[in-house]
């Protein structure tokens, strides 16, 4: 089987008014050799041309109602069935920060309910503040995920966080957290230099139970995280290169799978 060349991989970065990390996301895909496209949701008629859909960070629709809720409802009204098919076929769909909130509001993460059923929430940070600093993330043992396959378990990344609503609350409480851990859906946890996965604030910037920073669906092709790997990619943003491996993983996954 011939692997897809990176330049033949078309990643759709979906923006609406208020998203503001699409440029970093665009550069991240460009820097790993893929072909990114910045597309406004209103102009997105079909997902057919793309092998990957990414929802960037920002304050989509002014974060009105709840962070990500309006962006999610606009996707639901137009492209939701096609997006579910896209996911069913194994194509990757990712969300960073506000994008993660959108995927949660769409019911795609953690993805343990009926299609479209919302079973989680990214709630207000315990500090009641916008938390903006670097986070130390531990790559936890998890299912093969499109976004982390090239990042060894136990590896640590220093990646910027910048959010006001990042506390992952799951319907079903303790059992639900146990379930996503057992199913290998937890990708990243906030840790301190001693690798403690219960490290308190400010290591855990939002009070997320079990220090969860990023998760995927059970199949591993839908993923979301609060910190910004696309901002840790380039000498120009002075945040290092820790995020590069995640985008390389994604390109490798698509190249090998489709």
């Amino acid at each position: 089987m011939i692997e897809m060349r990176p330049q033949d991989i078309h990643a759709c970065i979906v923006r609406i008014e208020g998203t503001n990390n699409e440029d970093e996301m665009y550069r991240a895909f460009k820097n790993v050799g893929a072909t990114p496209h910045l597309v406004h949701l209103n102009e997105l008629k079909t997902l057919d041309p793309y092998q990957c859909i990414m929802i960037p960070g920002g304050f989509s629709a002014g974060d009105y109602v709840r962070a990500g809720a309006i962006f999610a409802s606009r996707i639901r009204s137009r492209l939701f069935d096609e997006l579910l098919d896209f996911v069913d076929h194994g194509y990757p769909v990712g969300g960073i920060c506000n994008g993660f909130q959108v995927l949660v509001e769409l019911g795609l993460l953690p993805g343990d309910g009926e299609p479209g059923e919302v079973t989680a929430c990214l709630a207000e940070n315990d500090s009641a503040r916008f938390e903006c600093r670097h986070s130390l993330l531990l790559r936890t043992p998890s299912n093969p995920c499109a976004f982390t396959s090239r990042l060894p378990e136990g590896e640590r990344l220093m990646v910027p966080s910048a959010h006001a609503e990042g506390k992952l609350l799951l319907a079903g409480g303790i059992r639900a957290y146990k379930r996503i851990e057992e199913r290998g859906q937890v990708l990243f946890k906030y840790v301190n230099y001693a690798n403690e996965t219960e490290a308190p604030y400010p290591w855990n910037p939002n009070g997320s139970p079990h220090n969860i920073a990023g998760i995927c669906n059970e199949k591993g092709n839908v993923f979301g995280m609060m910190p910004h790997p696309e901002r840790a990619f380039d000498i120009e943003n002075e945040n290092g290169y820790a995020g590069r491996t995640l985008f390389e993983s994604l390109i490798r996954y698509i190249g090998e799978t489709f």
Binding site: V65, R66, A69, I70, S73, R76, E105, V118, T119, A120, C121, A123, L169, L170, A171
Partner: peptide
């Protein structure tokens, strides 16, 4: 249920 509230919280 579709927009204004998140049933989890």
């Amino acid at each position: 249920e579709k927009l204004l509230a998140n049933p989890v919280i």
